[in-house]
């Protein structure tokens, strides 16, 4: 679907990416920063999956009666691996935040900066 010459799905990805980036940069709460990172990751995943889609494409499984065009399966495989990586990064980040909270009693960046 296009809107004033732009692919609407790509525009949505860019908007989502910017929302995530804003959260990561502007929010003081560390968990919100990590969620912002996750939103950015989702935007990139959505972009990659979308890039493999074609208008009227079928699932790429060749059985009797199926005919081209097929959608590309490789972006799906890449995104699946990307999700695994993203989950691991999130897990490590949350573990670190738990340690920060246990030690300092806060997860707000502005309060952490004031500590000696």
């Amino acid at each position: 679907m296009t809107l004033v010459g732009l692919d609407l799905d790509y525009v949505a990805c860019v908007v989502l990416f910017c929302v995530g980036l804003y959260m990561l940069v502007a929010k003081s709460n560390l968990i919100k920063k990590v969620i912002g990172l996750n939103v950015m990751e989702t935007a990139v995943f959505a972009f990659i999956v979308t890039s493999g889609m074609i208008e009227g494409g079928q699932e790429p499984i060749v059985v009797a009666g199926s005919a081209p065009p097929y959608t590309s399966p490789i972006p799906h495989a890449m995104v699946l691996t990307g999700i695994v990586v993203a989950v691991s990064v999130t897990a490590v980040a949350l573990a670190l935040i738990a340690q920060i909270h246990a030690h300092y009693g806060t997860i707000e960046v502005d309060e952490l900066k004031e500590l000696p």
């Binding site: 990590v34 990172l37 990064v89 980040a93 670190l96 935040i97 340690q99 920060i100 030690h103 952490l112």
Partner: peptide, 9 residues
């Protein structure tokens, strides 16, 4: 942990 998280982000 704080240094590692800054590195991670």
């Amino acid at each position: 942990a704080w240094a590692a998280l800054k590195y991670l982000l």
